[in-house]
Design a protein around this nucleic acid. Sequence first.
DNA 1: CTGATAATTTTGTCAGACAATCAATGAGAA
DNA 2: TTCTCATTGATTGTCTGACAAAATTATCAG
Lengths: 227, 227
Amino acid sequence: MTATVQETDSPSTVETVADAITAAVRGGRLVPGQRLTESEFTGRLGVSRSSVREAFRRLTADGLLAAEPHRGVTVRQLSRREVDNLFEVRGALEALAVQLALPALNAAPAPLLALQAELDAAAGAGEMNRFSELNGRFHRMFRLYAENPLLDETLTRLSNSLYWLQFRVLVDRAEVFETNRHHQLLTACITADDAAGADAAMREHVETARRLIQSLPDDHFAPAAHP
Amino acid sequence: MTATVQETDSPSTVETVADAITAAVRGGRLVPGQRLTESEFTGRLGVSRSSVREAFRRLTADGLLAAEPHRGVTVRQLSRREVDNLFEVRGALEALAVQLALPALNAAPAPLLALQAELDAAAGAGEMNRFSELNGRFHRMFRLYAENPLLDETLTRLSNSLYWLQFRVLVDRAEVFETNRHHQLLTACITADDAAGADAAMREHVETARRLIQSLPDDHFAPAAHP
DNA sequence: CTGATAATTTTGTCAGACAATCAATGAGAA
DNA sequence: TTCTCATTGATTGTCTGACAAAATTATCAG
């Protein structure tokens, strides 16, 4: 991942560039499918091509950009098939994270319960932005308590690829609040030390996210590669 | 992944470098933990630093090398903890691959059965190299039939990180032949369309691989980062 | 032998260059 | 007019050479 534990040292040039691009994507100034040229950034940021190229590669590895030989990079845009592929992997890994995190969370459920309370409040008040933010925190909590850096990185990569679609869902689909029932169920299973139930709840939650994303209109997806 | 479907076009320079390094690792000329300098390869292969640096990054993304700022890259060497982390992820993903591949393999089991027969023969004859090769084919078959490129890439990356340890196990541990019982069990579950059984068999198989690797002496592992 | 300092190596980044490839454009053919 | 194809322009892939910062190694005093 681009983000490491220690960020004390002055950020390197490529880190600066990578952060700028990430911010632009997060801020919607760069949209999925959009092409990024090297010159665009060498000029604006006053850095050399080497640094821009490396930043491109790093973000490609992070799942935020997609690279094609001789054609440069684009903000990653998934096809519907790729979304399905991604969610198959994500389901398995989020379920794993829950299993790994369960003992620790069951032993010290306070943070989870606090977060759940905030989720309930946001859902009740219909605050989408807040709910979105909290939803992210919810998932990250499992990754954190799972204490498996590789799992965390892998899930983060998947999450990066999904950023925009997830955002569209949060903005367009009021149904997202219904997913809070999954959160509640999951939280209940954790406190009850019910591993099987937690596994099922997380898989159901992920599957619902997949369905919501797939319900978005075609123009949010890349055309299928294979006819 | 470095390997793509189509390899028709003449290999680019960085591809050449990456392949050379991969071959050196596979051939044991570069051992885990060993440091690679850029000059080493610019000289020997007659290419520029740009290409070597990019090859390093690509192989790092592929899990074969590890990079540290200002310290260059080394052939990736896992700590025991990282091995455990990796196998947790691997178990979940190999199990997923089996689930996804099951329908197709159950419908057309001929290739699987043929491979199983070869495995049995190799195990019976005690041919380690052959068994190792077939074992790899066995796992790749599930990834292939799962028809999920992302899953395939992710598992390949994990496999790359494990290359050397897996190799040592194959060379040092006669117990590997016992794992063929898992193959047989798995094959049986596939042909019987027993999803739950296949899942359990694969997880058991992966867990055994983890135990075998962890049974290797300490000098095959990187020292733990955090005490 | 130990620790501090200097010399050497290596990486990170920059600048400029050129060929290969891709994208767009416009001319000619149907 | 519309389609096809060659020309043009932009962009990427790669090379060369350079330099400062950081890390590694060698050197030397205590």
